[in-house]
Design a protein around this nucleic acid. Structure first.
Length: 154
DNA sequence: GCCAACGTTGGC
DNA sequence: GCCAACGTTGGC
């Protein structure tokens, strides 16, 4: 059992969009970074914990709790010539981009990035490191527990 | 819109 | 395999 932080732009898929989806589950499309892909392809397991993070928006931060809901499979958008995520080098025989489904468990109050930055217990979180742009990052058990406690009260 | 930091591409 | 140029991310 591992834990992850996954960024989504609410303009694309917000936590509310994900909650409105069938089974409160969305395919994590559009990742086009190898490190992030490798986490989904090689390191995630069904049931892993996910912090659903809103990025590139007015109030960036953690917006809810979710879980990994599938094993990895090819991201359909790589094959779609009209998709912004189309990849001409990907083929169905040798897909380049893999994803997992993510199932939302709770929408929480927003835990803003600015709060995370001010919390000494979370100073080592990968997503807070200078220059970090990775859209999927592993979270330690301690970070996970600490954040869950914060999210589920108030 | 700015810009720092990082990732990718492609010529050599 | 190097590395300059370019593209992207994402907070502010």
């Amino acid at each position: 059992m591992r834990y992850w932080l996954m960024k989504s732009e609410p303009g694309e898929v917000s936590i509310d969009d994900a909650l409105a989806a069938p089974n409160q589950t969305v395919a994590w499309t559009g990742v086009r970074n190898y490190q992030a892909r490798n986490f989904m392809r090689d390191a995630m397991s069904v049931g892993d914990g996910v912090l659903f993070y809103h990025s590139s928006c007015a109030e960036p931060g953690i917006a809810g709790l979710a879980e990994v809901a599938s094993t990895p499979y090819p991201d359909e958008t790589q094959f779609d010539p009209v998709s912004p995520y189309f990849d001409p080098k990907a083929t169905r025989e040798t897909p380049r981009w893999m994803l997992v489904d993510v199932h939302i468990l709770h929408k929480t109050h927003l835990l803003p990035l600015s709060d995370l930055r001010q919390t000494p217990e979370l100073a080592d979180m990968l997503v807070l490191q200078k220059g970090s742009r990775l859209s999927i990052t592993p979270v330690t058990v301690d970070e996970w527990k600490f954040i869950c406690k914060k999210l589920l009260k108030k």
